[in-house]
Simulated assay, not measured.
Amino acid sequence: MATPDHLFALRNNFYLGAYQAAINNSDVQNLSEEDLIERDCLVYRSYIALGSYQLVINEIDSSQPTPLQAVKLLALYLSGPQNKETTISSLREWLSDAAIGNNPVLRLVAGTIFMHEQDYNEALKHTNTGGTMELHALNVQIFLKMHRSDYAEKQLKIMQQIDEDHTLTQLANAWLNLAVGGSKIHEASLIFDDFSEKFPSTGLILNGKAVCSMHMGQFEDAENFLLDALNKDAKDAETLANLIVCSLHLGKPSSRYLSQLKLSHPEHMLVKRISTAEENFDRAVQTVA
Rank of each mutant, 00 (worst) to 15 (best):
G101N: 00
N242R: 04
R273C: 13
A237W: 01
N224F: 08
S189Q: 12
R107F: 05
L124R: 00
F225S: 15
V56F: 00
A18G: 12
T132I: 03
N13K: 13
P266C: 03
N224V: 15
F8C: 08
R92G: 08
A234Y: 06
L243V: 05
G111T: 06
V71C: 03
H249F: 15
S201P: 10
F114W: 02
R39N: 14
L204F: 13
N58D: 11
L36A: 10
E267Q: 05
K125V: 09
L248C: 13
L16S: 01
L226A: 04
K184W: 12
A210V: 04
M269G: 15
S247A: 13
T129A: 13
N177D: 12
S189M: 09
D40H: 05
A2D: 12
L50R: 04
L263M: 09
I113R: 01
T239H: 01
H136F: 10
I23Y: 01
L78E: 15
R256P: 07
Q155M: 10
L124S: 02
T127W: 01
E238L: 12
A188S: 04
V56E: 01
N102M: 10
G208Y: 00
A99E: 12
G51W: 03
V271M: 08
A188C: 03
K145N: 14
V271T: 09
D27I: 13
S32H: 04
M159C: 02
L226H: 02
D119V: 07
M159S: 01
S264I: 07
F114S: 01
S96N: 09
A98V: 15
V109K: 00
C212T: 05
V140R: 00
C41Y: 06
D163F: 00
G51C: 06
D233K: 00
P81Q: 14
Y53V: 06
Y53C: 07
H136S: 07
A21M: 05
R39Q: 13
K235P: 08
H116I: 10
G251D: 10
L55V: 13
M269Y: 12
E134A: 02
L156V: 00
T86C: 10
K145E: 14
E38W: 06
A237H: 02
A210R: 01
S189D: 15
S259I: 10
T87Q: 14
P200C: 12
L74G: 12
D5A: 11
M133Y: 00
K72F: 05
E223R: 04
Y77R: 04
N103S: 05
Q260K: 07
L258E: 12
F114T: 04
H136T: 06
F143T: 02
H265K: 03
L206S: 11
R148F: 08
I185Y: 08
